[in-house]
């Protein structure tokens, strides 16, 4: 079974559990089922596949890689994809401020070293925990304040690789920090060494997703 088949199967199981639980507990949040579906929709898969393809040669060229951080990881889709390409020894830490992502994420994929940490990216940065990661990924820069993004780039270990995504999808309420172009996004990160920069066209919503990798 491919990882995608496995993922979809686990999504259905997670949704089934939510529904079953909701029959006996009125506090169960059924919107989570819709949220799980959205987390693996065509656009999510395409943008994470785009990132995986872009970062994979860079991972291969890294001499030392034991810890990967994924900030704003939602239910862990990107970590599942990366796991298909990297050693079982490497830790992938999914970090998200939404406490439920941990419980649902664990249902979608089980791997001892795909871990879930509840916390916000900035809190993590200020606690100096970010220094242990050699690769720091953030696929939702459009949700974060610019000063926080810069804080992350400044707080990382100097050799750590940053892999950030943002977009020009301004019409979503929670998108508080979109970029108008790949160039604008690239410049906004103040990286010294740009290793990759690319744009993914997203249809039918008609927006662009930008991926920048560097140090």
């Amino acid at each position: 079974m491919s990882y995608k088949e496995d993922l979809y199967k686990n999504c259905l199981k997670a949704i089934e559990k939510l529904y079953e639980d909701s029959k006996y507990n009125s506090e169960i949040d059924l919107f989570r089922s819709f949220d799980i579906i959205n987390s693996v929709n065509t656009n999510q898969l395409a943008s994470k596949e785009h990132l995986t393809k872009a970062v994979f040669p860079i991972i291969n060229s890294m001499k030392y890689l034991t810890h990967i951080a994924i900030l704003g990881s939602w239910y862990g889709l990107l970590g599942i994809m990366l796991r298909q390409h990297i050693s079982d020894e490497i830790y992938i830490d999914n970090i998200d401020s939404d406490p439920e992502t941990k419980f649902i994420g664990k249902r979608l994929h089980k791997h001892d070293r795909n871990r879930f940490i509840v916390g916000d990216a900035v809190g993590y940065t200020l606690n100096d925990k970010l220094k242990k990661y050699q690769l720091i990924i953030n696929t939702s820069c459009e949700h974060m304040e610019q000063e926080d993004l810069l804080l992350i780039t400044q707080a990382k270990h100097r050799n750590a690789v940053i892999c950030f995504q943002s977009n020009n999808y301004f019409s979503i309420d929670s998108h508080i920090n979109c970029s108008n172009s790949l160039e604008e996004f690239e410049n906004s990160l103040n990286l010294i060494d740009i290793m990759h920069a690319s744009t993914l066209e997203v249809k039918p919503e008609n927006y662009e997703r930008y991926t920048v990798i560097g140090r």
């Binding site: 919107f31 939404d98 406490p99 929670s174």
Partner: peptide, 9 residues
């Protein structure tokens, strides 16, 4: 506590 989720929901 969970603003991004609330704004999605």
């Amino acid at each position: 506590t969970n603003k991004d989720y609330f704004m999605r929901k």
